[in-house]
Simulated scan of single mutants.
Amino acid sequence: MHGDKFMDVIDFIPESGNVTADQFVEWVFLAEYENESERMSPRWDRHRQRIQDYFVEHMGSDAVDASQLKWEVEG
């Protein structure tokens, strides 16, 4: 929760432009933890690296167009 809103990583992805693996990882943690000290805790370093590695593995690059990260969920 951020204030009174549930946040998801997709809420931070821009409509266009490049998104780097580093940015994506930051947005994952921003969506998960409102408190900056919790987001930046060294205890998450290993997880940050793993998410970054998965991003590169899955996307095939350390930077991709934002449109590649947008998807629609069918209800």
Rank of each mutant, 00 (worst) to 15 (best):
residue 31 A to P: 12
residue 31 A to C: 05
residue 31 A to Y: 09
residue 31 A to V: 06
residue 32 E to H: 13
residue 32 E to R: 15
residue 33 Y to A: 09
residue 33 Y to M: 10
residue 33 Y to T: 10
residue 33 Y to L: 11
residue 33 Y to F: 15
residue 34 E to Q: 14
residue 34 E to K: 12
residue 34 E to D: 15
residue 34 E to M: 10
residue 34 E to P: 09
residue 34 E to C: 07
residue 34 E to S: 12
residue 34 E to R: 08
residue 35 N to Q: 05
residue 35 N to D: 13
residue 35 N to G: 01
residue 35 N to C: 03
residue 35 N to M: 05
residue 35 N to E: 08
residue 36 E to T: 10
residue 36 E to C: 04
residue 36 E to F: 07
residue 36 E to V: 11
residue 36 E to A: 10
residue 36 E to Q: 09
residue 37 S to Y: 13
residue 37 S to E: 14
residue 37 S to T: 13
residue 37 S to W: 12
residue 37 S to V: 13
residue 38 E to W: 06
residue 38 E to M: 08
residue 38 E to V: 13
residue 38 E to Q: 11
residue 38 E to I: 11
residue 39 R to M: 03
residue 39 R to I: 02
residue 39 R to E: 07
residue 39 R to L: 03
residue 39 R to G: 03
residue 40 M to W: 09
residue 40 M to G: 11
residue 40 M to V: 05
residue 40 M to L: 14
residue 40 M to C: 10
residue 40 M to R: 12
residue 40 M to K: 14
residue 40 M to N: 15
residue 41 S to L: 05
residue 41 S to D: 15
residue 41 S to G: 07
residue 41 S to R: 07
residue 42 P to A: 06
residue 42 P to D: 06
residue 42 P to Q: 05
residue 42 P to E: 07
residue 42 P to T: 02
residue 42 P to W: 02
residue 43 R to T: 09
residue 43 R to S: 08
residue 43 R to M: 10
residue 43 R to L: 09
residue 43 R to W: 07
residue 43 R to V: 10
residue 44 W to P: 00
residue 44 W to V: 04
residue 44 W to G: 00
residue 45 D to T: 09
residue 45 D to P: 04
residue 45 D to A: 08
residue 45 D to I: 08
residue 45 D to E: 11
residue 46 R to Y: 02
residue 46 R to G: 02
residue 46 R to K: 02
residue 46 R to Q: 03
residue 46 R to L: 03
residue 46 R to N: 03
residue 47 H to N: 12
residue 47 H to M: 13
residue 47 H to Q: 14
residue 47 H to V: 12
residue 47 H to I: 13
residue 48 R to I: 04
residue 48 R to Q: 05
residue 48 R to T: 04
residue 48 R to W: 06
residue 49 Q to S: 13
residue 49 Q to W: 08
residue 49 Q to V: 15
residue 49 Q to Y: 09
residue 50 R to K: 13
residue 50 R to T: 14
residue 50 R to F: 09
residue 50 R to H: 11
residue 51 I to S: 04
residue 51 I to M: 06
residue 51 I to P: 02
residue 51 I to Q: 04
residue 52 Q to C: 10
residue 52 Q to W: 06
residue 52 Q to T: 09
residue 52 Q to F: 05
residue 52 Q to K: 15
residue 52 Q to I: 06
residue 53 D to S: 12
residue 54 Y to P: 07
residue 54 Y to M: 12
residue 54 Y to K: 11
residue 54 Y to L: 13
residue 55 F to D: 01
residue 55 F to Q: 01
residue 55 F to V: 00
residue 55 F to S: 01
residue 55 F to L: 01
residue 55 F to P: 02
residue 55 F to E: 02
residue 56 V to P: 07
residue 56 V to C: 04
residue 56 V to M: 05
residue 56 V to Y: 02
residue 56 V to H: 02
residue 56 V to Q: 03
residue 56 V to N: 03
residue 57 E to T: 11
residue 57 E to A: 12
residue 57 E to S: 13
residue 57 E to H: 11
residue 58 H to K: 06
residue 58 H to R: 06
residue 58 H to S: 04
residue 58 H to D: 03
residue 58 H to F: 04
residue 58 H to P: 01
residue 59 M to F: 00
residue 59 M to I: 01
residue 59 M to K: 00
residue 59 M to P: 00
residue 59 M to T: 00
residue 59 M to C: 00
residue 60 G to Q: 00
residue 60 G to V: 00
residue 60 G to I: 01
residue 61 S to A: 02
residue 61 S to W: 01
residue 61 S to V: 01
residue 61 S to E: 01
residue 62 D to K: 12
residue 62 D to F: 09
residue 62 D to T: 11
residue 62 D to G: 09
residue 63 A to R: 13
residue 63 A to V: 10
residue 63 A to D: 09
